[in-house]
Design a protein around this nucleic acid. Structure first.
Lengths: 231, 231
DNA sequence: CGAACAATTGATCCTCATCAAACCTTGTGG
DNA sequence: CCACAAGGTTTGATGAGGATCAATTGTTCG
């Protein structure tokens, strides 16, 4: 593929790979472009490929039988996704990956990654480290959902988004791009409640909410809310 | 240590290990016995050892700042726990491990496992497989908590327990041992709600509830409840 | 037998989900 | 370039689902 192999070092799991390895991986990669709202793969599909997002944004989600969905994580550039299938034979994807905007990803056969890992312990380790962070994050979110009230959960979700994909706004503050529906699915609540909470915070000058956009004016206040001290 | 090395093959992650490997691991293991209610380790402690439970039962949990706790998983014999720290240097435990009865576990230095994995890809793979199942389970439980009502969540929690540690009762049905408080922490609800739901089910003849004990009379009914079809 | 712990049950209250309707914002096509 | 459609957001009204509190009743074990 026409990707510059060394760029792949930006991928978490490839940070310790040799130039040679990156070249091999690049050679085995094909590019896939997906329209906004379309899917890279569905939960339950055979996990033939894993992906590295080149641009721009996607999300991993799960749906329950009734069709309600839950957001597991947002994927931005140079993040790997769909890689858990590389671990076992005949694995299937654990979640569904949907493009939030028209997006492009590299696709590499899971088998190939597995093959590489046989002889390159550092690859296994870096993948395990990534998996550990997933476990940790899911455990935290699970505890949150079980024990915290909505307002805190929303604050937490926002803070996670900031860490993951926040950009500094020229006007000061941190800018985030997503719908309130998305935020609701990330914090286990509804669109309506998110809207109300954001309005509330806006009155207090903590955030500014707009269409598919939130500007965080006082991150520190958000942290306070997320940690308790019920205002 | 005086453990028979080949017994270690019952451990998920060691199923593909050579006899030689098992012997090495056994040699590096020390035994730790813990009283009921005491702790193997706490979340945040440096993850110096990983453990393999020899007997009898323990649980992994997280607490929030306010002290409310959430059960992540129940550990029974020959299950490994606290191993995620083996992945990175200076890692800390992601959860707290508490003995549910007086219990014994083998403790092995995390460093040693890491060393072994450097040259034994199958070990890494088997650990990764285990991690994958954790991720999958946590994702499912997270979705459940976000989208399902209590009754279903309790049913699901029971079914998971059955799969993990259910024993057939002589009177017919499947027997489980735990407090309703535990079950509440596993399904993200309260002691009171669990009690009410179990009473309800008892009236319908689905289960029988007693002190630290639940007998499941009609597992099939439980599955139905967990899957929807609001009775 | 009594103390400690587990379970039950009723009464009450509060947080949020749900429904409905209107309001904005953005992009598109005539 | 305006008007309209489509999607996103806001806000109010209502009610259900559970959490919480309080008091009582088992159960087990020393």
């Amino acid at each position: 593929m026409n990707i510059e192999p060394t760029k792949l070092r930006q991928v978490n799991v490839f940070q310790n790979a040799t130039d040679e390895d990156l070249k091999l991986i690049a050679q085995h990669a094909i590019e896939r472009s997906i329209e906004e709202g379309e899917f890279f793969f569905f939960q339950g599909d055979p996990a033939v490929y894993f992906y590295v997002l080149i641009s721009v944004r996607a999300k991993l989600m799960q749906m329950n039988p009734a069709g309600q969905q839950v957001n597991l994580r947002t994927i931005s550039e140079w993040q790997m996704f769909g890689a858990l299938g590389a671990v076992r034979d005949n694995a299937t994807y654990l979640a569904t990956a949907q493009a939030l905007e028209q997006s492009t990803a590299l696709a590499v056969k899971s088998d190939y990654l597995r093959e590489l890992m046989q002889t390159r312990p550092y690859l296994s380790f870096d993948l395990m480290k990534l998996m550990t962070t997933y476990i940790q994050e899911m455990q935290e979110r699970y505890r949150e959902l079980a024990t915290e009230k909505v307002e805190r959960r929303i604050a937490h979700a926002l803070l996670r988004l900031v860490a993951q994909m926040g950009t500094k706004s020229p006007e000061g503050g941190i800018e985030l791009t997503f719908t309130q529906q998305d935020l609701a699915e990330m914090s286990g609540t509804t669109l309506y409640t998110v809207s109300r909470v954001l309005s509330e915070w806006q009155k207090l000058g903590v955030v500014e909410a707009g269409r598919e956009r939130v500007l965080i004016r006082k991150p520190h206040e958000l942290v306070k809310i997320s940690e308790g001290a019920d205002r």
